[in-house]
Amino acid sequence: MTPTVRDFRPSDAKAVAELRRAVLPFLLSTPQGIAWEVATAPAAQRLRLFVAELDGRVVGAIRAVLLHDAGVPGQAAATPQVHPDHRGRGAGHALLTAAEDHLAAAGATRLYAWAVDGTGAPAFAERHGYRRTRQARFLRLDLKAAALPPLPTALPPGVRLHTGADVEADPRRLYEADAEAAADEPGDVPADALAYEDWLLRTWEHPHLDLDLTSVVTVDGEIASFTLAATDGRTRYSSAMTGTRRAFRGRGLARLAKTASLLRARDAGYTEAVTGNDAANAPMLAVNRAFGYRPCAGEWRYVRELRRD
């Protein structure tokens, strides 16, 4: 049977979450998170979430978006995900075609996708005209067994440690720190044009974000470093972003923020921590290795130029 591709419906949220957990077990995926991302997508993102059905069951999905937070226009992203039990029946090709057509019509000229290493995804991408650019790594930490370092008994002068809830009255300061840190992350498309209103929707108000587990480090009252903590509400914790503003780097503040966040996560009953880093992000990889994170999967970034008819 030929797969049917259609737009996501709210009733698909549970099926898409289960699909993503089957394809990408090292990422957070919940029905609430998926429904939120679709319902609150900024108009400039031109988001469409397509699903593929076989025999009345959702077996694949693809999230097609313009990278509207990039300073260079025309950048887009879409990665097909097909359940391992239903590959080889045309669902991936049908999903990718739908995403490419939508994004080309929306003005995209370059499309980025990810392909998990050690699967058929890299070969699939190359068959469809995509070329490999860079590598990223997913890492996992057993929170129950991890030998996490204790917090220092005394902080340096002027340094204070807070939770995300402590800055809830004025999240713009955290947005500014996040935007500065994200702009310096290695990658193909710098996220250097993210508006505050979009950050509020995508990050601060996202149902996965846990303000009590999020850590913020201030120096003389200025936000210097932070760890944004996301959870699935059950057992899994994810570092959504850890960063330090340029003027405060090299002082161990990111390690301090992440230490506090991981300790609180373990105390809250979370048993597994996951994160992802670009393979060229040596400073963050070193921090994560020191905590005991170990690689659990790798993926490659692919890109293809799109033509608009």
Rank of each mutant, 00 (worst) to 15 (best):
Ser29Ala: 15
Ala15Pro: 07
Ser238Ala: 15
Thr30Tyr: 02
Gly221Gln: 11
Tyr237Val: 05
Ala76Phe: 12
Gly276Glu: 15
Leu143Asn: 04
Ala257Asn: 06
His102Gly: 02
Val82Gly: 05
Trp300Tyr: 15
Pro157Ile: 03
Tyr130Gln: 07
Ala76Leu: 03
Asn277Cys: 04
Arg9Val: 11
Pro25Ser: 11
Ala193Ser: 13
Thr227Ile: 00
Gly276Thr: 14
Pro31Leu: 09
Ser29Phe: 06
Arg127Tyr: 00
Gly276Trp: 13
Asp117His: 14
Arg255Met: 00
His83Leu: 04
Ala35Gly: 14
Val116Phe: 01
Leu148Trp: 11
Phe138Ser: 13
Ala44Cys: 00
Gly120Leu: 10
Asp166Gly: 09
Leu139Asp: 12
Val23Glu: 03
Arg57Ile: 06
Arg87Gln: 15
Leu209Glu: 05
Tyr130Lys: 03
Gly250Ala: 06
Leu103Pro: 07
Ala76Gly: 12
Lys144Arg: 14
Ala146Leu: 02
Asp220Gly: 09
Asn281Ser: 11
Ala17Cys: 08
Thr235Trp: 10
Thr244Trp: 02
Val5Ser: 09
Met241Phe: 15
Ser239Met: 12
Pro207Gln: 08
Leu228His: 08
Trp114Asn: 12
Tyr302Ala: 02
Pro190Lys: 06
Ala108Asn: 10
Asp309Val: 09
Arg251Thr: 03
Arg264Ile: 05
Ala229Lys: 08
Ile34His: 13
His93Trp: 00
Thr109Ile: 06
Gln32Asn: 13
Leu200Ala: 01
Glu176His: 06
His206Gln: 05
